[in-house]
Computed example of a mutant assay.
Amino acid sequence: MSARNDVPPDTVGVDLLDHGVEVEYTDGRTTLYRGVPEPVTDTLTTPPKKETHVLVTDPTETEGVMLYVNDLKTHDDVLDSTGVGRVILDEGEEEEIFPGVTVRRLGGMRNEIEADPAVARGRVFVFVEDDWSESSYEFVAEDAVDDTDADANEA
């Protein structure tokens, strides 16, 4: 099978930890996306040639769906066995991958993600990584960031 086609996701387990986000794949294996996700309120643009993984949790925050964006390495059989989906976009294309979550393929092998957690009805995480680094992001409402800033200023 090809690694250049869309693959629908299945439900995966999610554990939100104080040191990262753990995903349990449908085959029972787990992976940990390390670090507290950085809050994003509007649009996230990834650096070029980085892997982009989007995770949207359900309202209970114990399960969700995950998609790899423009992943050309992972074989369909692996995606099928893990429950992770894949979306392939050509430059200039965009797709609403989940309600309230849109991904665009920009020039220079970059992705742009917009998300509204209220519409998604869960938490929206984006993990950006390559062989040397990984970054975690979470889309939050603007007022959630303002509240965090106010709390930090009171300390």
Rank of each mutant, 00 (worst) to 15 (best):
D146W: 14
E134C: 02
V54R: 03
R104M: 04
G122Q: 06
Y25E: 05
V101N: 10
M109Q: 13
Y137G: 12
E63W: 03
S2P: 14
V101R: 08
P9C: 07
E129N: 13
V78L: 07
E38M: 10
D18M: 03
V145T: 13
V12Y: 04
A141V: 00
V140T: 13
D149L: 15
E91G: 08
T74N: 09
V12M: 04
P37I: 03
Y137V: 10
T43E: 14
T82R: 05
T26V: 08
D58W: 04
V40D: 06
T57V: 06
T46H: 04
A150R: 15
V103G: 06
R86D: 07
L17P: 05
D76W: 00
K49C: 08
T46W: 02
F98M: 07
V124A: 05
E63T: 10
P48E: 14
L32P: 10
E94R: 15
T57A: 08
V69H: 04
V140L: 14
S81E: 12
S136N: 14
K49S: 15
D58L: 11
V65F: 07
Y137Q: 11
R34T: 14
T102C: 01
V65R: 14
V126C: 09
F139C: 07
E129R: 13
V23F: 05
G28C: 09
R121T: 04
T102M: 02
P117M: 01
E138V: 15
R123M: 09
T148H: 10
D131C: 00
